[in-house]
Design a protein around this nucleic acid. Structure first.
Lengths: 120, 120
DNA sequence: GTAAACTATTGAGTATACTCTATAGTTGTC
DNA sequence: GACAACTATAGAGTATACTCAATAGTTTAC
């Protein structure tokens, strides 16, 4: 699919998609044999990747972090051990973030109770 | 305590603390009666506030969002109902983020398994 | 065959969140 | 009373993640 389709299917603007491509998070390919233009086509998988980027961004990961992660499972020069290490490390980070969110939630609940009971 | 102490107790740089103060996230007060300087003193509570800011930031909340939240429980012009609404809305957001993190974790676990089984 | 709609590239502009520098004044210790 | 260590303010600089504008070329529908 072309960039416009990818944009519409993901809800991410063409500008942002190009930005992601410039940062190496996604990659489109020029169709073989076509020489009149360099329109890039994106595979179906790109949709999933964009969705993953959105989710990861939403919970506080930077594009650099996300790129490293995406690279680790597309880069074939990386040994399986290293890939596993990168992903496992990220899972731990995610778990830490979940813990932190639960802490934030608990704090908010305490404040909510205080307001309800009229302490502030 | 003065800004240096607050910085040391929280691990947040003086620059950043001042930035937070300029954004209205924390507030120091000049001691009454003191006219020779305008050194600001910060209450003990400020430490907790800074820690909360760090946690909230880590999981993807912006300083504006955090400020709104902090305001809602210090601003006395706000009705308890409105305060409750602000906090309850944030708790929902936190729950959503937890769900998203669990989704991200699941995806990472799938990829990890794929690497382990040699699919990529 | 032309006009609308699309694509690519380059580079500038914006918002957020710092981070640093320069300057000037204040406090505490010897 | 000198000097290190601190404080405040203002403003410049940086990194990240967009966001937009300008330009130029391409494709598609009529």
């Amino acid at each position: 699919m072309l960039i416009n389709t990818l944009s519409k299917k993901t809800g991410v603007s063409i500008h942002t998609l190009r930005y992601y491509e410039s940062r190496g998070l996604i990659k489109g390919q020029c169709r073989e044999g076509v020489t009149t233009n360099n329109y890039k086509t994106y595979p179906e998988d790109a949709i999933e990747v964009i969705e993953f980027i959105n989710e990861a961004k939403e919970v506080g990961f930077t594009l650099s972090e996300i790129k490293n992660l995406l690279d680790s499972w597309t880069n074939n020069r990386l040994s399986p051990e290293k890939k596993k290490a990168v992903i496992a490390a990220k899972i731990e980070e995610v778990e830490l973030k979940i813990k932190q969110l639960k802490l934030v939630k608990k704090k908010l609940q305490v404040v909510l109770k205080e307001v309800e009971e009229g302490y502030c």
